[in-house]
Amino acid sequence: MLSRVADSIYWLNRYIERAENVARFIDVNLNLILDLPSGVPPQWKPLIAVTGDIEQFDHNYSEVNSENVIQFLCFDSNYDNSIISCLQKARENARSIREVISSEMWEEVNSFYLAIKEASAASSFGTLPKLFSRVKMASHRFAGIMDATMSHNEGWQFGQMGRLLERADKTTRILDVKYFLLLPSAEWVGTPLDRIQWIALLKSASAYEMYRKCQHHITPGSVAEFLILDRAFPRSIHFCLWQTQQCLHEITQTPPGHWCNGAERALGKLCSQLSYLTIEDIVQSGLHEFLNQMQSSIYQVGNEIHHTFFALGDSQRALSNQSSNNLQLQSTSNTQASSA
């Protein structure tokens, strides 16, 4: 299939998944704020910190408060990773491959975008929870429609890869929120407030109920273990990357365990590593450091996919607007050239 078409369907899915996850981690913070004991101020900075786009925020906003953070992450069309920007780009990608995807998929993306655009004009603090659940549901609906109306062909596999890779990346960030989320002091570790934060975190990954089925206690180690290493939970990093790998090998027809391009090699290495890690290994090396490392590995996989499948031929003409995308990676400069 055309590289551009593969690229568009991959990014169509990534952007929708990204919009969903942005809604998820704002939602978790909203929930937390409502549960804070009196005297503990609400924290909005962690949300920006975890995106890695704090510089851009500081440049355009004078103060970190709920209004600004929500405007920035949801409705700021100058910010590439806001919900509205993601949906706009998702729609544009969908539009350029309408003859490839099913018309139901197009209709869903189109109405998703229009609904959020409309909501952005009339949002208030009180309507936000409803908005976020709409974003999540629309994203699930899109995934379902794609699954049920499009042939599971090469294009579909690219779309799946996009969604899963994005989800893996966002799960690392949701976990990392806790690192930035300061407790008033060290004495608070292990208190109900600490526990409430971990629960909120699980909920934002829709993981609380599934977690409870395998763990009785909420401990930092077991929450992290669940979201990183669980093999059955569909938002855990290991699960997402494992599935991504399956899609990749479906596309290339390379037998499992072998590789013949950079994408297969990078992803294969990452999956093998996760298969044999324990949570103790992770905690020992530092959870935050591990997550950072994971983000840059996932970024690397995305890069390899881009070079293997999308950026064929001369390197002068970047293939599409998304190739310049900053994958919200902290401390990684945005190096790829933007396209003409």
């Binding site: 299939m1 055309l2 590289s3 551009r4 003859e99 064929l312 031929g313 003409r317």
Partner: peptide, 24 residues
């Protein structure tokens, strides 16, 4: 049939070719 844009096409080896996920 395929719907292509200019950026999908390239002249290589004396022929017009399109960039696909499996090569030109």
């Amino acid at each position: 049939i395929e719907l292509v844009e200019g950026r999908d096409l390239i002249v290589a080896d004396g022929y017009l070719q399109m960039r696909t996920t499996k090569g030109l």
